[in-house]
Design a protein around this nucleic acid. Structure first.
Length: 417
RNA sequence: GUGGGUGUAGCUCAGUUGGCAGAGCACCGGGUUGUGGCCCCGGUUGUCGAGGGUUCGAGCCCCUUCACUCACCCCA
């Protein structure tokens, strides 16, 4: 038997209903805040991700599904959505229609990592981005939307962590200070952090190895090095969140994995997900549009891990599964044909109707109706056909009544709508 | 890429010092010739993850390998 590819998974009936519900909630919330959907390709030129995410990130170095197409062009299965959205924004000059663009997209992303709880090689993200707004209020709005969505989806134990990563002006100064500190404590760092120190020193901040934590105890924090503009920006973000009564944790060690982030950075964490505790993450990336060849445009956005969201939502999956209003149990050829006609007519009118298309006994058909959790069952055999009326049974109360054959469709519709 | 755990029916799992491959659930049928759930009776379901080795004999012991899973790394 041919198995599914490692790290990939099927989403089966019984769970797709919850996926759909979450998607509908997210869409309607986004629309309330003026976001429009954008649909972008799953394949892009490899160069797009190399330039946006950063050449020497793990994602680009070893996690992307990259291959050559038949003409030798290097293409990549998207590992995230932001790069494509920015590419599209620039390519179509969306900012010329309206300098403020609020966009969202939902779909699969691909990274070849070792699978584990809440992490798959094909995983789904819900992305929202705001272009053309430099104000901290845009960042606050995104966090507000996230927390509102999670609350509506009954996600428990969520915490908003925020930090600021500064800008091109102040971050280099901070990096220097951090490096000086790391030099002093280099003997305490784990092998991974020694590597990080030269490659991406900020990463040492969120290392979990105890000795590294100790080494970083009195390390300088980015928030203490923010320039006046960045500091004012961060203060405004916090002020807005306080006004909105969104609790947050100032996490001086919160950094982002992708190179393009600046200023505000945030992550929504939950305690119920084990090691993969981030269910959404995002932040500001004011330099990316320009870096990809567009004009200087401010940008901020987030990505929600859909698969993780499913795992932490307390909503009851089963409550979204739609069961049939009616099951028609027909006995005999003539009855089955008549039942089939009704079944199609009712389906056309919006009544979820099912029946047994093969030859089965009544007991078996009743059992099937029960299994499907049908609200009503019509029972009809030769007797009913000749007498001109069928039995309509309410499966909850077990009450049965006679319905004239000529009135079946209307009678069912009266009860089911 | 690195480490730990687990692989037996569609699902959850038993399986004794190595001796005929099991249970519950699910599914199908019957008890009730035309009435679901509860009950009773019967039935179907297997490359015991795969390959090799030891043995008269391997689900069990040994080697190899694959998959799943959790964690590291990284990230949503």
């Amino acid at each position: 038997m041919i198995q599914i590819i490692r790290g990939f998974k099927d989403i089966l009936p019984g769970e797709t209903e919850l996926w759909q519900h979450i998607e509908i909630c997210a869409r309607s919330l986004f629309e309330n805040f003026g976001f429009k959907e954008i649909r972008i390709p799953i394949l892009e030129k490899t160069e797009l991700f190399a330039r946006s995410i950063g050449e020497d990130t793990d994602i680009v170095e070893k996690e992307m599904y990259t291959f050559e197409d038949r003409k030798g062009e290097k293409i990549t299965l998207r590992p995230e959505a932001t790069a494509s959205i920015v590419r599209s924004l620039i390519q179509h000059g969306l900012y010329t229609k309206n300098p403020v663009q609020k966009l969202y997209t939902i779909g699969p992303m691909f990274r070849r990592e070792r699978p584990q709880k809440g992490r798959y090689r094909q995983f789904y993200q819900i992305n929202a981005e705001i272009f053309g707004v430099g104000s901290a209020l845009a960042d606050a709005e995104l966090i507000f939307i996230l927390m509102t969505l999670f609350s509506r989806l009954s996600v428990k134990n969520t915490e908003a962590h925020i930090n600021s990563l500064g800008c091109r002006e102040c971050r280099p100064i901070y990096k220097e200070a951090l490096n000086t500190h790391l030099d002093d404590f280099s003997s305490m760092l784990c092998p991974d952090c020694v590597r990080r120190k030269s490659r991406n020193p900020l990463r040492v901040l969120d290392c979990k190895v105890p000795s590294c934590r100790l080494a970083m105890e009195n390390a300088p924090a980015m928030v203490d090095f923010l320039c006046d503009d960045c500091n004012a920006h961060f203060e405004e973000t916090k002020q807005a969140l306080e006004m909105l009564k969104i609790p947050f944790i100032l996490d001086r060690n919160l950094v982002r994995g992708l190179d393009y982030y600046t200023r505000t950075t945030f992550e929504i964490q939950t305690s119920v997900l084990g090691a993969q505790n981030a269910v959404a993450g995002g932040g500001r990336y004011d330099g990316l549009v320009q870096a990809l060849g567009g004009p200087q445009i401010s940008a901020t956005g987030f990505a929600i891990g859909f698969d993780r969201l499913i795992e932490v939502s307390d909503l009851d999956r089963d409550s979204f599964v739609k069961s049939p209003h009616l099951f028609i149990a027909a006995l005999g050829e003539k009855s089955r044909m008549k039942a089939f006609e009704w079944s199609c007519r009712l389906g056309e009118k919006g009544i979820r109707t099912e029946m047994e298309l093969g030859k089965k006994g009544l007991k078996s058909q009743m059992k099937q109706a029960d299994r499907l959790n049908a609200g009503f069952v019509i029972i009809m055999g030769e007797d009913e056909l000749s007498s001109g009326s069928v039995v309509l049974k309410d499966m909850k109360t077990s009450i049965q009544e006679q319905i004239p054959i000529t009135d079946v469709v209307d009678a069912v519709m009266r009860r089911c709508i």
